[in-house]
């Protein structure tokens, strides 16, 4: 509808996936996935293990090369570029500054043996910060923002609890003020009470910073709390997509109905 398009023309997508496919030998992990993500938008990718969620996240974040299709990203200079056409240095720059990647296992996203302060400061040094005092101040203020006692700044994350490690990983990712954060099961290995705190924290940070995020989760409650929009995957395909509460309250596909009806009431 023309009348509906006018209002939507006010901004442009940050990331566009166009018919992405990836196969491992005869096994298709991801087939023909297309969508556009806008600045400030949080998209959840849901589905059970083996549905292709993590493969898709790796394709979107240029960690895997697709067999077909492409991902383009609007760089900070406003130019939309095909990720496959970026040089290695440009891609690294994206990873260090404009993107964050929160792993399910914080040990993959943190350096476990160096201090929390260094974990956060390292991202700043990678983008050229060199004033020790300023780096430390910024690291402390980020620890506070993710509710970690600043007194623990010199401790290594291996001395932290699971929830603290995950919050530290988030601080490390957000310190360079990225515009897009990828999250792979960010609350995966945590206790329920710790999950609630982390979700609340992420929800606030995402809205305060106007971040766009792509969150892979098998937990529909996480999708409901964090995301604006949801894509349901099964067997490597996106089978249903839409506004999060619409898909969860009025699921249309058999598999989505099964997922939604399988939630145990608390």
């Amino acid at each position: 509808m023309a009348e509906n398009q006018d209002a939507a023309a006010d901004d442009q997508p940050l990331l566009i996936a166009d018919r992405l496919s990836k196969a491992y030998g005869r096994l298709t992990a991801c087939r023909d996935v297309s969508f556009a993500l806008y600045p400030g938008e949080v998209l959840a990718i849901v589905g059970e293990s083996g549905s292709g969620k993590t493969t898709l996240l790796q394709l979107l974040s240029a960690q895997l090369v697709p067999n077909a299709g492409c991902v383009s990203y609007r760089m900070r200079d406003g130019v939309t570029r095909d990720l496959a056409a970026l040089g290695e240095a440009e891609r690294r720059f994206l990873f260090r500054t404009d993107w964050g990647y929160v792993h399910q296992d914080p040990a993959q996203g943190l350096r476990m043996a160096v201090s929390a302060g260094a974990n956060v400061g390292e991202r700043l040094m990678a983008v050229g910060w060199n004033h020790y005092g300023r780096i430390r101040d910024t690291a402390s203020s980020w620890l506070e923002r993710v509710e970690i006692d600043v007194g623990r700044i010199d401790d290594a994350p291996r001395t932290y609890s699971g929830g603290m490690r995950q919050r530290l990983q988030i601080a490390r990712n957000l310190v360079t003020e990225p515009r897009l954060v990828f999250m792979d099961e960010p609350t995966g290995g945590l206790d329920v009470s710790v999950q609630a705190r982390l979700l609340d924290l992420m929800r606030n940070l995402v809205s305060e910073l106007g971040l766009a995020a792509i969150v892979v989760t098998h937990d529909l409650a996480v999708a409901r709390l964090l995301s604006h929009r949801v894509m349901v995957m099964k067997g490597g395909r996106v089978i249903e997509t839409g506004l999060t509460d619409q898909v969860l309250d009025d699921p249309r596909e058999p598999y989505t109905q099964l997922l939604v009806s399988s939630i145990l009431p608390a």
Partner: peptide, 8 residues
């Protein structure tokens, strides 16, 4: 017929 972003 609106897109999700428009509904938001």
């Amino acid at each position: 017929k609106a897109e999700p972003r428009q509904i938001l």
